[in-house]
């Protein structure tokens, strides 16, 4: 009753879709390709394909297998969960429409987990490093308290229009996957290692590596907030420290793959300028 089935498009459609999934049973086990086949329906996206695969739990040649694991949430491209590599390109699987994919490659759809993050299982990956980067740049407004202190500072419309796009970053990780300078860091847990020791080791490994375009952009977002600015120096110290902005190689893939079209390279250039001034200032203020 509510929201009836989607419209049937008149053009020629296949009856079946071939899907190849790069599966992996767990961390440290070898990945393997598996072929699936699902019935075609109009207006499908990769999520509905994966839902069918989960319900079938059978490969194209009839072998019973465990359902493919993957991560998804809102299905409307605002939560950032369902990032994966589809036909070689990183993107959100909810907005990857099957009809478009078949136009590019009618033979099959190829699904892979992101390559820059450790695989948890199948298409699920561990993106804790991405969130850790947000801690590194202290991506927050350091307010005094949550008591009622009246409104915040007045903000010119122009500033809002500059900051709103940056604030739409949903931590999906597309920019990191496509960045040739962002390399995978996988910390394997030792047998018998405590949570705390493992977390500390992960943190250390993450801290030594590139922070990534998303975090640079968030640093710029908060550096341009009237109160967020109070941590400006600390953020620039991070950006000019180990794994900071210097690791950027200006391939500009980040901005090209960002599903939210966030002006990441503008943020990077702004951060570059700020870092230049910060370093010169530090040199003469010493």
């Amino acid at each position: 009753m509510i929201a009836p089935g989607p419209e049937v498009s008149p053009s020629r459609r296949p009856s079946k879709i071939n899907v190849r999934v790069l599966r992996q049973d767990g961390p440290g086990t070898p990945p393997y390709w598996e072929r699936h086949q699902v019935d075609y329906e109009p207006d499908m996206n990769v999520i509905s394909v994966l839902q069918k695969i989960a319900a079938q739990a059978t490969t194209f040649d009839g072998k019973k297998v465990s359902p493919v694991a993957w991560d998804c949430g809102c299905l409307e491209e605002v939560c950032g969960s369902c990032t994966m590599v589809i036909n070689g390109r990183v993107r959100q699987s909810c907005s990857a429409l099957v009809d478009r994919l078949l136009e590019d490659n009618p033979e099959e759809i190829q699904l892979q987990p992101m390559t820059k993050f450790p695989v948890v299982r199948d298409l699920m990956i561990d993106r804790s490093r991405l969130f850790h980067s947000l801690k590194r740049v202290q991506a927050w407004v350091p307010v005094d308290s949550y008591f009622d202190m009246g409104a915040g500072p007045r903000i010119p419309r122009e500033d809002q229009e500059q900051n709103y796009p940056l604030s739409q970053c949903m931590s999906c990780g597309c920019c990191l996957e496509a960045c040739p300078q962002f390399n995978k860091v996988e910390v394997i847990r030792h047998a018998g290692e405590t949570d705390e020791a493992f977390d500390a080791r992960k943190k250390q490994a993450y801290d030594a590596e590139f922070i990534g375009p998303h975090a640079i952009s968030q640093a710029m977002l908060f550096n341009s907030h009237p109160v967020g600015k109070n941590l400006q120096k600390e953020r620039l110290e991070t950006l000019t420290g180990t794994g900071g902005i210097q690791a950027c190689g200006n391939a500009q893939n980040c901005v090209a793959v960002c599903p939210k079209e966030i002006p990441l390279t503008t943020s990077i250039a702004r951060a570059g300028r700020a870092a230049t001034l910060h370093t010169i200032k530090k040199l003469f203020d010493r």
């Binding site: 030792h190 420290g241 690791a247």
Partner: peptide, 29 residues
């Protein structure tokens, strides 16, 4: 460090460690 990647960070005071630490200044130079 148990980081099985070519980019594995090394904090062991080696040349790589030095380069990492002064990464920003070296790359700007």
């Amino acid at each position: 460090m148990n980081v099985p990647t070519p980019s594995a960070p090394s904090q062991s005071g080696s040349l790589a460690g030095f380069l990492k630490k002064h990464d920003f200044i070296i790359r700007r130079l």
